[in-house]
Structure formats: C-alpha cells, structure tokens
Design a protein around this nucleic acid. Sequence first.
DNA 1: GCCGTTTTCGGCCCGACTGTTTTCAGTCG
Length: 581
Amino acid sequence: MTAEQMAEVLRNIARLLELKGENPFKIRAYTTGADVAENFSGDIVAKAKANDLGGIKGIGDALQQKLHELASTGKLEFYEKLKAEFGDGILELFEVQGLGAKKIAALFATLGVKSIADLRRVCESGEAAKLPGFGAKTAEKLLQGISFRESHAHEFRQEQVAPIVMGVLEMLRDHPDVSRVEVGGSYRRGKETVHDLDFLAASRRPKEVLEDFVHMPGVTQVLGHGETKASVVLDSGVQCDLRVVTNDEFACALVYFTGSKEHNIVLRSRALERGWSLNEYAFTPVANGNGKEPPKCMEEADVYRALDLEVVPPELRENTGEIEAAEEGRIPRLVELQNLRGCFHNHTVASDGAATLREMAEAAQEVGWQYLGIADHSKSSFQANGLNETRLAAQVEEIRKLNAEYEKEGFRIFAGSEVDILKDGALDFSDEVMAGLDYVVASVHNLFTLSEAEMTKRIIKAIENPYVTMLGHVTGRLLLSRPSYAVNIPEIIEAASANGTIIEINANPWRLDMDWRWWKMAKEKGVKCAINPDAHSTRGLQDVFFGARIARKGWLTREDVINCLPLGQVEQALRVKREGK
DNA sequence: GCCGTTTTCGGCCCGACTGTTTTCAGTCG
C-alpha cells in the first residue's frame, strides 16, 4: 500500500458517493483527504498503520479510521460495499471527458450503464440521446471522449512507470546471477508516455533470472516465459518484458532494445556499408563484405564508434537528425538534472498548494537549490483560490521577510505569480501590480474551446506584455486524459523569440508541456526554456526529474535552460525582458 | 465528513461554457 493508492481509494469513494447523490461537502471531504494523503510530507502509510493520524488537517475521525483499516489490512469494507453497488467498471466512466457524476448516475439508473462498453452501446443506439438533459450532441461528444481515451489505452505516464522501473532494476541488480542491467525502450528514450517497459539483463544463468522475474511481487499475469525472455503484466496494468543476454552481447542488445526502430534501421545500414551486419547480439561479417574484422562491443559507445559516430544519448535516438549530428561531431552536451539551480512556477497554501512558503523554501534548499520562484494563482482562478492584489501584496511582503532571513545562506525566494491570460489576451493583474513582482508566469486556464486563431492571438498578446517573463503550460494538455487546445505553436515560438519571453517545460508528468518535439525549433530561434515543476507540494518539486528528461529530448543544453543559471545571473536574466535590454 | 467555535452545529469556493432547454443542469478549471 502506497500513499498514492490510499489517495486513489479516497478519490474513488468520493466518486461513488457522488453517484449516490450524497452531501457534496461530504464528497469534498474525501477528495480533500485524498489530496492530503498524497501530498503528506512523511510516511503517511506507516502512520495510518500505527493509527497515528491525529492532528492532520483534513483527516478527521472517520478518515483516520478508514485509512487505518486500509493500511493495516489492505482493504476497506466501506469502499468494497460501495463498489459492489455499482460494479467495478463504473469508475472508468469518470475518465470520459464530458461525463460527470450526474450523467453517470442517470445512465446507470435508467439504462443500466456500468462500463465504457455499455456507454458506447447506448450512445450508438440513440438511447442515451433520449434521456432528459441529454441530446444528440451529448452522445456524439461522449463517443469522442471514449475514442480519445481508447486511443491512449495501455499507455502510461512517466510518474506511473518510473517507480516500477526503479523497483525492477533494483530487483535485477540485486540478483546474484545478473552482472549488468538496464531499462530500454521508449522509457529510456524519455518519451512522455510508454506502453510497456523493456528490461535487459546480462547473465550466464538466464533461466534463474527469468524464474525470479516472473515471480516478483506484483505480477498478475505471465504472458510468456521462455529461455531468454519473459513477459509479465503487473497489478498496475503495465506490461514488463525482460530479455537476458550474455555479457558480450549486452552492448548491442541495449542499442537494439533502446531503439527507436527508425534509429536502429539507420545504424544497421551504416553497418552494412562497412561490411558487417548488426543485430541484437553483435556485429557479424556479411557474405560479400570487405573482410574487415567486426568490432567487439562491450559498451554502447563501442557500437557507435564502430559506425564512425559520436555516442548518441538515448533521448535523441528518434532519427530526427541525431545521426547526421553524430557524424559531424555536433551532438550537444545535454542538460542534466544536476545542472538546475532552482525553478519557477510553484504554488503554496495561499492558492491551491499543500505547503507553506517556508516549507517550500526549505524543501528547495534541501534539494540544494539557490532559489525558488513562487507563482501562486491569480484572482480569476477561483477554483484554485487565486490571490487578489491584496493577498498578493501580503505574500510579497512575507517573501521579503523570509529572504532577509535566508540571505546569509545565499538562498532567495523570487516573488512571482501565475497570472491568468484572460479571453482577449489581457492579463489578470495590471502592469503596475506585475511591476512589483520579480517575475510573472502567464498561463491559460479557461476557454479551451476558442478557435486556433483566437487562442494563438490571445497567448501572443500575453507574450508581448513586457512584464510576462515566461509562458506556462502552452497547450494545456493532460497526458492520456485531455488533448491540447487548438493553438499554433510555431507562431507562439516566433512571438516568444521576438519578445524575449521564456517558454516553460511544465515538468508535471501529466503535462510535459511544451512538447519536446518543438524545442529544437524554439532553440534555433533563441527562445530560452525554464524547467518548472508546477509543484503543489514540497514533493512536487521532484517533478523536475521528468522535466529535465524532456529538455534533453528537446536537444537542450544547460545554456538553453534559464534555471541552470546561478542566483546572481538569474536575477539579471529576470530583469532583462521587462527593462527591454 | 471536516473544521472551528461567537463549541457540539452551521458553513463549507466561484464563474463560464455547453448543450439542453426556454431558465437551467452539468461539467470543468
């Protein structure tokens, strides 16, 4: 049982209670409890087990008792009973865009809809459109929601698979028969979502390794189990494949299993040009080759060297120019997580965060950062308890006081705001108010259905405001959940370039926005990047891990990323745009 | 269901859009 799993149970209870038409405030109490459990700084699972949850705001008597039962037995009877009333499949209906509790309850009560499959049937048959409050357009939208969800089925975001990767790697590393191990595939290439996980191990006893692999904790299904490879499904639904090779084969196998397929095809054709064939195990001479001895490869670097290439970092292996760059010695030295000196775009309890200013600042210092930007929501984001001018001024005051305290430690909090971009591109705060801040992140939080032209114009207008330092989550997408709104990214990049506006990589694994595919273009136009965790808790700061991977995938170096600058230089950089120099 | 207190009940976050209606319910951020 993890904190995330406990939170998920509470969140599901809230949904089921909503279906029953329970008191909305009771429902909110469960949702709040879920947030608290997930963001708790400390071992909430251990506390729950020990029945030691007293005094945590948002977890009252009832939730304490339920979390204790859940943590100590792994089950919660209250939850099981609720699920039994509606069936297990009902919860997945909440994942369909445009479908909330009221509609689900109506579909359940009148048409017996209990799953996505049921929903599709009644939408296609026209039954759904006849329900009160429903219509033809509703049914059409729901079908679209289903197909969006389905086209992303069996895909997982980074934060869902990263802990699994760590766990499996650890298990294999500790195995007495394993000498080397790596994760390959799209995970290693740093893709924003993956559909399965590929592991590679070197061993002289593949049988023993595979035996332990298919019996590791969490395996619910063994899809295949042979002499050198096995494939399992974990309780999280993630498919994991393990391939075991010899130590001599490991390097070529790692290149092969890391891909991408397109990248590998180019490598193999380069091998043929040199008289060798390259497969997942080794280079071998071809029949009409030049007779040159095929190279022996112990490391990935040996494979690339044999092909007269610089080593290509896994993130770049998408056949989008990396081979040419490697041939000409132009592979950039990519930014690394350790290069970050701080970050911007973080929230506190003042808006919708879980930690106080001081807690966030101290967590940042623990990470080893020199600065932390605070950008709570602005007043138009009611749902997030956005700050008005008065509350913002009070926060700035508090930040100045804390800074006086932190100065001797060489740490600084930057006072900022995540200012809403309004419908016409105007900003939620006046220039005078923004001038009193150290920086501004401008973001879109509503009216997602504007036309591409309107949305682009709206965002560009914000970019042109001299007080807007950086643009937040440019497309508004939530990976595997909500597509981006319509917006013309090249025009946005052009405007950011012309105005010296920074574009963020929102490192929240649900967003990873702006997408890595655009960064090469942005970099060529001189646009700087900020890797921002959009943290809503102290733990959220760790999300820069995902952001740094995306920056690497976008070919960015430390020179391209503003928050690699040390404190003194970043202060200056923040002033550059507003002072027009 | 939680919180806080002018303690043991009363209040708990706001506004806009969509698609359904013909004044509003549901969903979303």
